[in-house]
């Protein structure tokens, strides 16, 4: 799929300072509509901080985030999420004691309208809304491949299924962009390979743009159309996978100064 130049998400000159520590330093970054892009960098490079700025969890010290044509800097996280910017978490944050179905349905909260009154009296509208939500939840659980776990508690699911459930839950927001924070952490090579296919299906079947934070280089190189590299809070490189692979600054950031033989590892 070719990417258009229209950015669905545009972060301009983002800086985040915690006390004296500059976690993110003047980083600009765009996600073209319909693209799959990755954010990589060594541990502590500021990737997750940057993620948290995009989703409204942190206020940037300076800079702006434009999502779907609107400034969302400083907007409440729940509004950004219901506006169509969904995420998963590096350390899985499901609602463990709720069923898989309920987990997904929580994310439909902003698209539903039932209140105390209509829920207590089970109005026609409420029943229909609830039935549609359940149907959509099942569709999403099927999509991520855990359609049989509908009524199981999230905490009882296997690790891989929990990761899938996080994606299903994010998709329930009917997002335009999904941010996946280290989705292959803890996966074996076979699962990681399958994940590459899954990300492509995310785009083609659910119509979302995808931003990945990822450590598994083979996944990143296979799936990304563009890659941005952060190191110590700064953007050190940006480009296609092949450009990034051969970028001396990237190799240096990952592997230290004597990078020529190390570049084979990145390959």
């Amino acid at each position: 799929m070719s990417t258009t130049n229209n950015p669905v998400l545009d972060a301009q000159n983002i800086s985040v300072v915690f006390g004296g520590l500059v976690a993110v330093n003047d980083v600009s970054f765009t996600i073209p509509e319909g693209s799959i892009v990755s954010l990589i960098g060594p541990n502590g490079a500021g990737k997750t901080t940057f993620f948290n700025v995009l989703t409204g969890l942190y206020q940037p010290t300076s800079g702006d985030v434009i999502f779907d044509g609107e400034y969302i800097t400083g907007r409440a996280p729940h509004k950004i999420a219901s506006g169509g910017l969904a995420r998963t978490f590096q350390n899985i944050r499901l609602f463990g004691m709720m069923t898989a179905q309920e987990n997904v349905m929580v994310a439909m909260h902003s698209k539903m309208s039932a209140g105390v009154w209509s829920t207590t009296f089970r109005t026609k509208k409420q029943k229909r809304e609830e039935a549609e939500a359940k149907e959509f939840a099942q569709e999403l659980l099927d999509f991520v491949g855990i359609g049989k776990t509908t009524h199981e508690y999230a905490r009882n699911l296997s690790y891989g299924d929990q990761r899938r459930l996080e994606v299903a839950r994010a998709l329930a927001l009917r997002p335009k962009v999904v941010l996946l924070d280290e989705p292959t952490a803890g996966m074996n090579p076979n699962e990681s390979a399958a994940f590459v296919e899954f990300v492509r299906r995310l785009r083609s079947e659910r119509g979302v743009s995808v931003l990945l934070i990822e450590h598994d280089m083979s996944v990143v190189m296979q799936v990304s159309e563009r890659i941005t590299v952060l190191d110590q809070g700064q953007k050190i490189a940006e480009g296609t996978p092949s450009e990034i692979k051969n970028n001396p600054r990237v190799i240096e950031a990952y592997l230290g100064k004597s990078g020529s033989e190390a570049s084979q590892n990145v390959n």
Binding site: L57, A76, M97, V106, L173
Partner: peptide
């Protein structure tokens, strides 16, 4: 229930806390 379990995750799923 989502808020009881994980407030931050709930807000990230569009629940106005």
């Amino acid at each position: 229930l989502a808020i009881r379990e994980d407030e931050l995750a709930a807000s990230m799923m569009g629940v106005p806390l």
